[in-house]
């Protein structure tokens, strides 16, 4: 894996935050305070920091689930301030999401959960039949396509969630504490899948508390504290303070 792709890249950044401030209503302290950061195509970035430091706000801003109070955000070449509401779904099709709580549909099996992401954006059935098994294999769940979520371990459920996030080949994959509910041994497997996804050229942005994982991966680390970026280090570690 090339260590510092952001120096080598000539393309425009996939995620560009320019002096972004976000203050939630009824709160005095900004969740993000004049944050400027660029993430290039194909990068793997850890977003670290204590709870309430602004990691989730950062991810929500990328998805345009929230709007910044000031500053400009560009995602996948689009200025989010100028992106009309009805085009937001098209932005989200280029962004995959994985969460701590998996968010699978309990009444659908593995295959159906992954296929659901394609069905609801109107992909033809033939296409779905072709790509869903491929991506189930990519996350290491071959042979378990017809299991229900409650028949799977936490790690396996998170693999389903990753398959669903990746099945439409997004440009960016956002992962919000994907190993938060999973034991350390299983987390390694999850990180391997994320690395595999990253190697296909997908930019991965992962918010995490897990120092061991950050230290073992040796990727770029952006550290937030009280809504400010206090460290941006390529090939970083989690840091001594935590």
């Amino acid at each position: 894996m090339s260590p510092t792709p952001r120096l080598a890249s000539r393309d425009a950044p996939v995620i560009h935050f320019d002096n972004v401030t976000k203050v939630y209503t009824n709160q005095n302290r900004p969740a993000l305070d004049h944050v400027s950061v660029d993430v290039d195509k194909g990068e793997f970035v850890f977003l670290v920091g204590p709870s309430g430091s602004g990691k989730s706000t950062f991810l929500r801003l990328v998805l345009k689930e929230e709007r910044p109070n000031s500053g400009a955000i560009h995602v996948a070449g689009k200025d989010l301030a100028r992106l009309s509401n009805f085009k937001v779904p098209h932005l989200r099709r280029r962004i995959g999401c994985v969460f701590q709580d998996f968010r699978l549909l309990p009444n659908k099996n593995v295959y159906e959960n992954v296929a659901f992401a394609l069905e609801v954006i109107g992909k033809p059935r033939r296409f779905i039949r072709k790509v869903v098994p491929e991506v189930i294999e990519l996350v290491g769940l071959e042979g378990k396509a017809h299991r229900m979520p409650d028949e799977l371990s936490g790690g396996e459920q998170q693999r389903v969630a990753m398959a669903r996030a990746f099945v439409n080949r997004p440009m960016i994959l956002l992962a919000d504490e994907p190993t938060g509910n999973i034991d350390p041994a299983t987390s390694i497997g999850i990180m391997k899948v994320l690395d595999r996804i990253n190697r296909t050229g997908t930019t991965v942005l992962m918010a995490t508390h897990d120092a061991a994982i950050v230290d073992s991966m040796r990727k770029r680390v952006v550290e937030l504290e009280d809504g400010k970026i206090v460290r941006d280090q390529s090939r970083g570690v989690y840091g001594q303070a935590y």
């Binding site: 779904p89 098209h90 099709r93 968010r103 549909l105 609801v120 954006i121 439409n168």
Partner: peptide, 17 residues
Amino acid sequence: RRETGIMRLVGASNLYI
């Protein structure tokens, strides 16, 4: 809400939701 949340996330259009 679980289904619609996922639909929103993967970029289903408003009409579809």
